[in-house]
Design a protein around this nucleic acid. Structure first.
Length: 466
RNA sequence: GUGGAUGUAGCUCAGGGGUAGAGCAUCGGAUUGUGGCUCCGAGUGUCGCGGGUUCGAAUCCCGUCUUCCACCCCA
């Protein structure tokens, strides 16, 4: 009989249990912070109607969309009416438009789900991956103060992830467009093209951008190019510097002035929100690729790992759901690509395998004592301690080996000797220590051990809070 | 979609016209209440797929697929 080689399609991330636990810990941290800042959970279907998803046909998105089709429909040669979502923003727009009357505005939702993109796989880039989005959608209006609030959320998450220093870089599309307009680049399309090139500054360097802007398709005058480069090369190192950067821009047109005002308001909020100055900076080269951003744009990087690139990005959009409703729904949102983030952090050695979610293994020393083992396991579980029981008799050595390989930190051992003494043995496989405790104090003793390990950062809190 | 590379045991790879190897991993054992170290033993491959050259191909040639890297785009 021929067997099929078991393998996952390229561009998918499939993990072993201990790595999956580490990944889920990452998602949990993100989710916890989203909820802490008052965002509500939403899930939408993995696939949407094609007509809903592909509002803007042509271009990059359509090239990357996976269509979904039943075999029956495929045989009939019908065009697929379903497609897998490629981000969470388009489904959000549909969701808000569809449930507009049942939602409270400003609507704050978080969504942690997988999205699909049919692109060729590369390092840390997947065809199926998790996005963790938050968006705040207003009705008719939404204050830029919300734009500042998102900075606080990002800072809170990356602080808690403890992956070293990070920088949330801020910019504003109006400010950029206004600046280009002042230089005589008035056409919106042309501005978009310049935005896209300028965004590559930190990756490709000033010379690359200079050459591109002077080349065909742009052909900008040297003075304009130098003005642009001088503008986009600026970075703030502190709040005072950020304010000075805005102050030096001067005015000249409504867009530029609006951008300066908006960014200024965002800066004014950050201190009160408790975001340290070291966590954010203005960077006038940040543009983001998506063309629906109209105001604030965000891009977060890990200072000590520039190679990882952006770990969280997003921005403000004027009218989220114009394709689905006549209501004006402005919003602001950010997204964390969790699969890529996890993968990159692991590559950089910033994240390892976790310990098992199983906290204690109840070993089976003597099959005759099975009723005792069952009782022990029940006690542990009732106390909120995650416990696994060995059901098959076998050598104790093998059972401990199993616990070790499975990443289980503690083993409980009970044989004739302990039973006679009314005691039970607790073994810490990591510390290579064991101690005997009176049977009645097992739970207390284990809790102390577990809390200690959590305090040392060796374990994460599992099971119900005790 | 464009350009470049790759493909040999579960993994990392060596070999290079005469029919396949190492390390790691896996499993078993080292006197029946204690894991990660050590020692002993065991198994596995249509050498990516198809065709050609040859007495003979994993090894040379052609095609094809796959995976990877860069561009594009993005998380």
């Amino acid at each position: 009989m021929s067997v099929i080689k078991p393998r996952t399609p390229t561009g998918t991330l499939e993990l072993l249990p201990l790595d999956q636990i580490a990944f889920q810990d990452l998602l949990d941290t993100i989710r916890r912070n989203y909820e802490r800042y008052g965002f509500l959970p939403v899930e939408t279907p993995a696939f949407e109607l094609s007509e809903v998803l592909l509002t803007k046909s042509g271009g990059e998105t359509e090239r990357q969309v996976y269509f979904v089709q039943s075999t029956g429909s495929l045989k009939q040669g019908d065009a697929p009416e379903l497609a897998l979502r490629f981000d969470l923003t388009v489904p959000l727009a549909r969701y808000v438009a569809e449930h507009e009357h049942a939602l409270s505005f400003p609507f704050r939702r978080y969504q942690i789900q997988r999205v699909y993109r049919g692109e060729s796989a590369q390092r840390g880039r997947f065809r199926e991956f998790y996005q963790c989005d938050i968006d705040i959608v207003g009705k008719d209006e939404l204050s830029v103060r919300y734009d500042a609030e998102l900075v606080a959320v990002i800072a809170s998450i990356f602080d808690e992830l403890a992956v070293g220093p990070f920088l949330i870089q801020l910019n504003n599309r109006k400010l950029m467009r206004g600046f280009f307009e002042r230089l005589g680049i008035a056409d919106a399309e042309q501005q978009t093209l310049v935005l896209r090139e300028v965004d590559k500054l930190d990756k490709r360097g000033a010379d690359y951008v200079r050459r591109t802007l002077a080349g065909e398709g742009f052909g900008l005058a040297e003075a304009a190019i130098e003005a642009i480069l001088g503008f986009v090369s600026k970075r703030s190192g502190s709040l005072a510097e950020a304010r000075a950067m805005l102050g030096e821009l001067g005015g000249g047109n409504a867009q530029l002035e609006a951008g300066i005002t908006e960014l200024g308001e965002v800066l004014d909020m950050l201190e009160g929100l408790g975001v340290p100055e070291s966590r954010y900076a203005l960077n006038f080269s940040i543009a983001r690729g998506l063309d629906y951003y109209t105001g604030t744009v965000y891009e977060t990087t890990l200072t000590e790992h520039p190679g990882i690139g952006s770990v969280c990005s997003g921005g403000r959009y004027d009218n989220l759901a114009s394709h689905y409703t006549r209501s004006k729904l402005p919003g602001v949102g950010i997204s964390i690509g969790a699969s890529r983030l996890y993968w990159q952090l692991r590559e950089a050695g910033l994240i390892g395998s976790a310990e098992s979610t199983v906290q204690v293994l109840v070993t089976q020393m003597d099959p005759k004592l099975m009723p005792e083992y069952l009782k022990l396991a029940r006690e542990l579980r009732t106390a909120g301690i995650n416990a696994e029981m060995v059901m098959d008799a076998g050598k104790l050595g093998k059972q401990l080996k199993y616990a070790d390989k499975a990443g289980i930190r503690f083993a409980v051992i009970l044989g004739e000797d302990e039973l006679a003494r009314g005691a039970v043995m607790v073994k810490d496989l990591r510390k290579q220590e064991q101690f005997e405790t009176p049977r009645g104090e097992l739970i207390k003793a284990l809790r102390v051990e577990i809390e200690q390990a959590i305090a040392l950062g060796e374990l994460r809190r599992r099971g119900k809070a005790s």
